[in-house]
Design a binder for these strands. Structure first.
Lengths: 344, 344
DNA sequence: ATGAAAGCGCTAACAG
DNA sequence: CTGTTAGCGCTTTCAT
């Protein structure tokens, strides 16, 4: 059933039927009702490709996901992001298009989105410190929002980001409050913008107490279980080992925990671990102190906001870039135990 | 730059240019070369909407993701699946469309894909035991492949699945070999097909040794950290507690580990944990025994296969359904320690 | 308030 | 081998 058939059925012109269905004001209420009823009865849905061709709008948003070339793995938080964004798109009648490409193919992916004309806007994932994509997208002239930031970008751009620096600063203070003085940071690759910000937060907290980050306890690399395991084992094997780890991702933290277990150390007693991703527990002399870091829901919120922002940018072309910084929820549960932490 | 402009530039008809670019045989190699060069030079990409309208093919595959209504969370393995599928699509020139919808909206999502005409085929995620979607999709008449199975489906359908039963059977045998006799299973919701199969594997392994699963050590529910934590604490608090857990997801296993840590038990000594998701370690009297379950790469492989299968189904309409069962890699590393496990 | 007609950019018969 | 012509299904001027 297409528009023409429906219009013949109704003894109206396709024009009138189209107008009736799309809420144009110059249609009488009577015919509009009649048209709506017939459309419902026959399960008519406009062909989206034809509409897109006629209107010039694709009614779709493209997401370009960088594929880690080494691991062929996409960032696990992506699922949370799109579950937030997807809801917004669905309400607005937009489709979500995903393109997973290696670092080398990124540029081409953006150009292809533009010239193929299958999206009206783009969400950029995994921005790096020196990210050429931003000026590329400005040149191309397609609306976009970056999830995260590219610190050294000269040109203005729209972004939504979680306050990584603040989150890691608070987490570090939390460990310092527990009495830890030797803290290891197991971070993501520092070509990624978020990793730089997380280290900055870590160092700021240490600095506020007159401490300085030990280079040997600063590690950064791919976000894998193996990496976490190997780094933690290395650091724990040294004569003076960290008493706590701050870990950039849940996956990595699993490896760290494995290393701790292998060495016969006790989590939360001999060594503590904080991740940026989930609910974890700590101990002060045997008393539980849960720490909630709500990264997953923050990321979903970031997805929702990015989508809204992008749809607004599409609706108001030529408008100024917008930005939004989210605070990740991070709350420390009631501590029932005595104050001092493990011996430094 | 569109086809007409490019053809004027080349002093050729749009038809010839189109044929040259799409590899039609009746074009001379000389002009084909010339056309290709010009297209590359000017960054020409055909407008996909116009092509879709003209050909009747959308050149896109739709993925319908069920959104867990309670948690608003998508299954974390989804990222691995689409990273596998995405590569196949990209090579074949297909786009990937994602639709994230709650359980209630599923039917409408499939119908909309069909009537809007924006996809040529569908991948179904998260099949349940009694899944009405299969007969719906057969009625609608759009090619599809199910990631996973719906055990009680009457009609034939195409699917790709990991052998969950076998994976859990082997994992259980592994724990039994270590000397464990009290094993807890923390499973996904048993309305999901995969959860049923995992339990079946668990029970089969126990049965092979003349053992029977204890109902109090069988738990199933949402795949969250909190659920894992709460179930493990409950089971560990009982007078006779499991000495090992078999856990259905990495996220859940994090909660289980937290529970173990809180109770001051030692991972791999007092209690062992196997997950279906990642690299983990076990201990026999202090010696490390790594167990590798490569779910993540298996899922990526499943994504790749599903995509290939779907493209074939699209290419050969009316063909018979295809199925494919993958064995998850699960290998036990070299054990350097003495044989006996923890006391039963 | 309704309709006729002209495209959107491409592909696919049908000529030549 | 290349070009001409006619749509794909819809929206959108421009008339009436």
């Amino acid at each position: 059933m297409n528009l023409k058939q429906l219009s013949e059925l109704l003894k109206l012109s396709p024009t009138t039927v189209s107008r009736a269905l799309n809420g144009y004001p110059e249609v009488s209420e009577a015919t509009r009702k009649r048209v709506r009823a017939a459309a419902d009865a026959h399960g008519y849905h406009p062909n989206i490709r034809a509409r897109a061709l006629a209107t010039g709008r694709a009614m779709a948003i493209g997401h370009v996901l960088p594929l880690d070339s080494r691991n062929e793995v996409v960032n696990p938080i992506f699922g949370d992001f799109i579950s937030g964004a997807g809801e917004t798109y669905a309400q607005a009648g937009y489709d979500m298009l995903i393109s997973i490409v290696s670092e080398a193919e990124q540029e081409e992916a953006y150009r292809a989105f533009r010239t193929k004309g299958n999206v009206d806007g783009i969400i950029v994932h995994g921005p790096r410190m020196h990210d050429s994509r931003i000026s590329l997208l400005n040149d191309i002239g397609i609306p976009y929002v970056v999830h995260g930031r590219a610190s050294d970008a000269r040109e203005p751009y729209s972004w939504v980001d979680v306050n990584n620096m603040h989150a890691f600063e608070r987490a570090t203070h939390f460990l310092l409050d527990l009495g830890h003085r030797r803290i290891g940071l197991i971070n993501g690759q520092e070509s990624m913008d978020f990793a730089i910000r997380r280290r900055a937060g870590f160092e700021a907290a240490l600095g506020a107490r007159g401490l300085v980050a030990e280079p040997r306890w600063l590690r950064s690399g791919e976000m894998s279980e193996t990496f976490g395991h190997d780094m933690a084992r290395e650091m724990l094997a040294a004569p003076t080992a960290p008493t706590a780890f701050l870990v950039s991702s849940m996956i990595v933290a699993i490896g760290v925990r494995r290393a701790i277990e292998e060495l016969g150390l006790r989590m939360g007693r001999d060594v503590s671990v904080i991740t940026h991703d989930d609910v974890l527990s700590y101990f002060r002399n045997g008393a539980e102190v849960p720490l909630f870091t709500a990264t997953r829901s923050s990321v979903r919120e970031a997805g929702r906001l990015s989508a809204e922002m992008l749809l607004e940018l599409i609706a108001t072309p030529g408008g100024p870039p917008r930005t939004r910084l989210l605070e990740a929820e991070l709350t420390v549960g009631q501590s029932t135990g005595p104050a001092p932490g493990p011996a430094p």
